[in-house]
Structure formats: structure tokens, C-alpha cells
């Protein structure tokens, strides 16, 4: 009897914890995966290996964040990968035509962000103002954005100026550049999480009609969510460009579905209204760590994709089940 009460109160505490911090189950999975990685390959927890993990998956983390702001409003953006590609080729082309000196690289970054936000605003207009169904409408815009990317740079392979990728790969004061970016992103994320905008986006996702009746400009808020998504997709494109050091009009296509998976892994409900952006960042890392763990365990190469697929499906299911139990 007392045992049961104790376990009940424990599970109630757990539920409250998860309701307050939806990313807790994901964080636990993350720690377990880190431990397993370390168990099977001790060097995978070394500073250099972690740096490699972060610099490879920083783009996906940012793209998962981008997707979060849309999912919060119970929308979806299937064009994020195409936005990454477009920003990538625009930046590379601008850098090439203006030369590689640092000021011009900076200018190219500003142009890239402008392009990302413009794409996001366009998506927001199409989905929220024209009231098209998000899944099919953003698929259509993704075709459109890919077309523009192909127009800007028809074939992959334009190199990026040294100033850009060297910065991404270098260290300052003994700490790799990517860690500064990660820290900066976490700061922005914390600031945004406390901002009125994100709370309003969540409110709209929870109950759009209720939000409208309490006087919130629902359409404008959803458009802003898409604009934020475009902004973070542009940042993701910058990291990807730093990592690959070249322009490719189709580079981001594969990342779209992974960004959705990362959001769900992080404990955010696709139905909108609740979730955390930190969860999405953790979700992206979970995908990365599952991929490396499958390798470290010694899975034969042709089986790796299957085991990865099964592990990610399993993690997705656990994530959904745990977060629903917490919300009962």
C-alpha cells in the first residue's frame, strides 16, 4: 500500500516534471545514448569526437528548431530543406561574385538570412493567409524554392571562400567555433522561449479559435512562426555551408523529414500547443548519436541503415508514449 502510494507520488512528480519540461524524456534518451556510445567506443566521448558530432549536426539542430516554431502553431513546414538549399546557393553565389574578403562574407550571410526570412514569410502567407493545407502547400513551395535554387546554381560544386569555412572549422581560445555557435543558439533560444511571440504561437497551436476570440491576431502570429522558421533554416544553411564548404542546389532536401523526426523526438506534439525548442535540439543530437552508435556497435555496413531506421522508429514511439502519459 505505502509502496504504491510512494510510486504513485513518484509518477505524479515525473508527470509534472515532463509537463513542465517536455524535453526530459529526450534528455534521458540522450544521456543513455551518450553512455552507450562511450561504452562501445570510449574515444567517441573525447573532445574532438564531440566537436565533430556538433559540427556535423549543428545544421540539423537549427533546422529542427526552425521546424519547432511552426509545429508549435500546429502547422508543418515541408519546405525547410529546400530553404536550406536555396540559402546555401545564394550565399555561395554572392560570396563568389563579390570575392572572399571577410566583409563580403558577412554581407553574404545577411543576404542569406534575408532570403530565408522571405521564404518563411511566403510560406506563412500561403498557409495562414490563403488558408491552404500546410503539408501540401509547403510541399508545393518546396518545389518552387528548389526551382529558384537550381536557377541560381544549376550544378553542385561551387567552392566557398576560405574565410568562411576556415572560420567554421577553427578554434578560438582553445574552444572550437561551433561550440560558440551552439552557445549563442542556446542563448537566443532561451531569450525567445521567454518572449511573448513564442507564447502566442503556442497559444494559437493549442486552440486557434480560442486565441482568436481572446483577441490574438492568429493569422499574423502563424505567419511570424513561419518567418522564424525561415530565419533558423537560413542559420542552418550557414552551418551546413561551413561544414560542406560548397554550394549544392539540392543539399537540404534530405533534411526535411529528419527535422520533423527531431522535433517529435524532442517531445513536441505535432498537434501543436506544447513542446520545447530545446527538445528539438536534443532530438537532432539523438538522431546523430543513434547513427554513430549503430556504427560503433559494429553493425555490418549494409545493415546499418536498417538498424538506424528501427532505432529511430523505436525512439519516436517511446517519445510519443512517454509524453502522452505525462499529459494524462
Amino acid at each position: 500500500m505505502t509502496d504504491q502510494t510512494a510510486s504513485n507520488s513518484l509518477s505524479v512528480a515525473g508527470q509534472r516534471l515532463i509537463a513542465r519540461f517536455p524535453f526530459v524524456p529526450a534528455a534521458i534518451i540522450l544521456v543513455v545514448l551518450l553512455a552507450l556510445n562511450g561504452w562501445f567506443e570510449p574515444r567517441s566521448l573525447s573532445f574532438g569526437a564531440l566537436r565533430g558530432l556538433v559540427s556535423t549536426y549543428l545544421a540539423l539542430m537549427l533546422l529542427a528548431m526552425a521546424q519547432s516554431y511552426v509545429v508549435f502553431a500546429s502547422d508543418l513546414d515541408l519546405s525547410v530543406g529546400a530553404i536550406v538549399s536555396l540559402v546555401n546557393v545564394v550565399m555561395v553565389t554572392v560570396m563568389q561574385s563579390l570575392g572572399g574578403d571577410p566583409l563580403m562574407v558577412l554581407f553574404a550571410c545577411v543576404v542569406g538570412i534575408a532570403v530565408g526570412v522571405a521564404c518563411g514569410l511566403f510560406n506563412g502567407f500561403v498557409v495562414a493567409a490563403l488558408r491552404l493545407q500546410a503539408i501540401v502547400a509547403t510541399f508545393a513551395t518546396s518545389i518552387f524554392f528548389t526551382g529558384i535554387a537550381l536557377y541560381v546554381l544549376p550544378v553542385a560544386g561551387a567552392p566557398v571562400p576560405e574565410a568562411f569555412w576556415l572560420t567554421y572549422a577553427s578554434s578560438y581560445f582553445g574552444i572550437p567555433f561551433v561550440f560558440y555557435v551552439l552557445a549563442l543558439v542556446l542563448v537566443i533560444l532561451t531569450l525567445l522561449a521567454r518572449s511573448g511571440l513564442v507564447i502566442r504561437i503556442l497559444t494559437v497551436g493549442d486552440d486557434a479559435m480560442g486565441a482568436f476570440h481572446s483577441g490574438l491576431p492568429v493569422t499574423a502570429i502563424r505567419i511570424k512562426g513561419y518567418a522564424l522558421c525561415g530565419l533558423f533554416a537560413a542559420l542552418a544553411a550557414m552551418c551546413l555551408t561551413g561544414d560542406t564548404a560548397s554550394g549544392d542546389p539540392l543539399v537540404g532536401g534530405q533534411m526535411t523529414l529528419n527535422s520533423v523526426a527531431a522535433v517529435v523526438l524532442g517531445g513536441t506534439a505535432l498537434s501543436g500547443g506544447k513542446g520545447s525548442v530545446l527538445g528539438a535540439v536534443i532530438g537532432a543530437l539523438i538522431i546523430g548519436l543513434i547513427n554513430s552508435l549503430v556504427f560503433f556497435v559494429g553493425t555490418p555496413s549494409e545493415w546499418q541503415n536498417l538498424v538506424q531506421g528501427l532505432a529511430i522508429l523505436g525512439a519516436l514511439m517511446i517519445g510519443v508514449l512517454v509524453s502522452r502519459r505525462a499529459q494524462k
Partner: peptide, 19 residues
């Protein structure tokens, strides 16, 4: 398990690509 269809079929797509 009441997994949202989008999530379930997305995960399954990954499994099939691996297969």
C-alpha cells in the same frame, strides 16, 4: 499505440529505406 500517423509512417519509411 496511438502514434500520430505522420510520425509512425515517417519512422516506417526510414525502416524500409534501411531494408
Amino acid at each position: 499505440l496511438r502514434i500520430p500517423p505522420l510520425v509512425m509512417t515517417l519512422g516506417m519509411l526510414g525502416v524500409m529505406q534501411g531494408l
